[in-house]
Amino acid sequence: MRILVVSDTHGKNKKLIDKVKAIKKPDLIFHLGDYVGDGLTISKALEISPIIVMGNGDHPSSGFKEEEIIEIKGKRIFLTHGHRFGVYSNLNRLFYRAKELEADIALFGHTHIPIVKEMEGCILMNPGSPSSPRGFSHKKTFAIIEIDKEIKVKHIEID
């Protein structure tokens, strides 16, 4: 299973869509909030089903949840935007929520900074932002997760 993971699109999708069309097609999209409508737009453009959670920049009436737990090929995946877990200061609260949910991987956005960190067997991953990057590298990014017997995570830069 190949999954496109994106967050914090903030209404700017064209370069992301073009880049994803140029690589091997994902089977599923995870949009981690801040412009949940973008998740639907990306899904339609790529003809791939989405799973979307809302972020702090989304209106509560959007109809999307703040958290989702999905199981794929025996791996539990926790999706959240991250703003309720203090991810700017550290990942501890996110990690403990993931452990509480028995997740193998916790996906979050909010900081616009790509990161992959493993803590006690749980992968914590932020895809960065394809439209408004922050952090040292300041590169526009999204991520691809491949799930088989193991979980493989890769960040991809957008020119």
Rank of each mutant, 00 (worst) to 15 (best):
K75R: 05
M54R: 15
S43G: 12
Y35N: 15
I147L: 03
V20P: 09
G128T: 05
A143C: 06
T41S: 15
I52N: 03
I51T: 12
S137D: 06
H83D: 11
T9W: 03
I29S: 10
F142N: 09
S43D: 12
R134V: 00
K24A: 09
D58Q: 03
T141I: 09
L79V: 02
I156H: 03
N13I: 14
E118F: 04
K65Y: 08
H155I: 02
I105K: 05
V6W: 00
K152G: 01
M119H: 04
N56E: 09
D18W: 00
G63T: 05
S137T: 13
S7H: 05
G109E: 09
D58P: 05
I70E: 02
H81S: 06
L40A: 15
S43C: 13
I156Q: 00
H83C: 07
K75S: 09
P130S: 11
M1V: 13
P133F: 09
L46A: 14
E47L: 13
I147Q: 07
M1W: 02
V5H: 01
R2P: 10
I147V: 13
A22M: 10
K117V: 10
G33C: 01
R97K: 15
P60T: 03
K152D: 10
I151A: 07
K44H: 14
K65S: 14
K44R: 15
H10G: 01
H138C: 08
G82Y: 00
L40R: 14
S62C: 12
S61E: 12
P133E: 09
I151D: 03
A22R: 11
E157N: 14
D104K: 07
D18R: 11
M125Q: 03
K117W: 04
I72L: 14
I115M: 13
E68P: 07
G33P: 06
I151K: 00
I23V: 12
D58L: 09
I17V: 14
I17R: 12
L79R: 03
L101H: 06
N92W: 08
G55C: 05
F95K: 06
P133W: 08
Y96N: 12
R76A: 07
E146V: 15
S132Y: 11
H83F: 07
G33L: 09
I158W: 11
D104G: 02
H59S: 14
V153A: 10
K99L: 13
K154I: 04
N90K: 04
M1H: 09
I77W: 06
L28R: 12
I145E: 12
F85M: 06
D104S: 05
N126F: 01
F136P: 00
K19G: 04
K25R: 13
F64Q: 11
A143E: 06
G57S: 11
T9I: 04
Y88T: 10
S62H: 02
H83W: 11
G33F: 06
I52Y: 01
I105H: 01
T9E: 03
E47H: 12
